[in-house]
């Protein structure tokens, strides 16, 4: 059981603060989505965790140890930072064999991860002939090489085709179910919503949220009911009598905020209004995220001028 512990981590480049007193913990057994706009400090935080960049202050540890003190770190932590890191003139297989040798990972694992990432057929081709999606798979193969208990992937879905995205989603789920610690950064909301159990959100280097995903959405997006009817006047009257606000959309459906499907259904039935569609609008990660960042922008704007 290894978690990633980030303690009061700060990184400054000159006067720009890329990571600003960030504290969070990534726990095993679930997929943690690492969200934030481009430039929010996600990649910097990952580099700090991997000991590649030196923090200005604070610390990042894996199971209580700094990355640089790990013996044969690929056996503990697998990371994908940049799918372009593989040299174009090397074959995919040789790229992995180079990494395997440094950490005494048996060469048999190279074949296994190539198989697992669907690259076995192109393993002996030079990386420069690979598509972006194939490079991404090679980067993931490198991360899985040492069968690590911690996996960190920076934007793994970049360049993947729809089939590849489903594959990554399934892979992340399986890794978490096996009890591994999985941290996956993304700036794509729908993608993250599809795989994450927990969210860590950064904005301008600061921690904005560290909560379970469902809770994150529910706290920020008011539930609503979407309803469509063939008798709009009657429905409007019935809803108004029950004290509901309604908003009519141009395409003909109505949104009833702060309502539950059960209540609206009964209400329509009692009023004898024919219902064509009735769905709960649970709110999406995207809505919740935009709500959070809007609030954050308001909050930070005066500080920027100071």
């Amino acid at each position: 059981m290894t978690s990633i512990d980030v303690q009061d981590l700060t990184k400054e480049y000159g006067t720009r603060r890329a990571v600003d007193h960030v504290t969070f913990r990534v726990r095993p057994g679930r997929v943690t989505g690492f969200l934030g706009p481009n430039g929010a400090g996600k990649s910097t935080t990952m580099r700090l965790i991997l000991g590649l960049d030196r923090p200005t202050s604070g610390s990042a540890t894996l199971g209580g140890r700094a990355y640089a003190t790990l013996r044969e770190p690929l056996r503990h932590v697998g990371a994908l930072l940049d799918a372009q890191a593989a040299h174009g003139s090397r074959t995919g297989r040789d790229h992995l064999r180079v990494l395997a040798a440094s950490n005494r990972v048996p060469d048999r694992r190279v074949g296994e991860v190539l198989e697992e990432t669907g690259l076995a057929a192109v393993a002996r081709r030079r990386v420069r002939t690979y598509s972006l999606g194939m490079r991404q798979r090679l980067g993931i193969a490198a991360a899985l090489l040492g069968d690590p208990e911690v996996i960190m992937l920076d934007e793994p879905a970049n360049g993947l085709d729809p089939e590849g995205i489903v594959w990554v989603r399934t892979l992340l789920r399986r890794l978490a179910d096996e009890g591994r610690t999985v941290l996956v950064s993304s700036h794509l909301m729908n993608e993250t919503a599809a795989f994450a159990d927990h969210l860590v959100v950064l904005g301008r280097g600061r921690l904005l949220a560290d909560t379970p995903m469902r809770q994150f959405i529910d706290a920020r997006v008011r539930p609503a009911v979407r309803v469509r009817t063939s008798a709009p006047t009657a429905l409007g009257a019935a809803l108004a009598r029950a004290g509901h606000d309604v908003a009519e959309h141009p395409d003909g459906h109505w949104m009833v905020p702060d309502a539950r499907v059960d209540d609206i259904g009964r209400l329509a039935s009692a009023a004898g209004v024919p219902i064509l569609e009735l769905t709960a609008d649970q709110g999406t990660l995207e809505q919740a995220y935009l709500d959070l960042t809007a609030a954050e922008t308001e909050f930070t704007a005066p500080l920027q001028e100071a």
Partner: peptide, 13 residues
């Protein structure tokens, strides 16, 4: 090139 050093130092810190 393209962060190859990062990958190398991730393997050998």
């Amino acid at each position: 090139h393209n962060g190859a050093l990062r990958l190398s130092l991730t393997a050998v810190p």
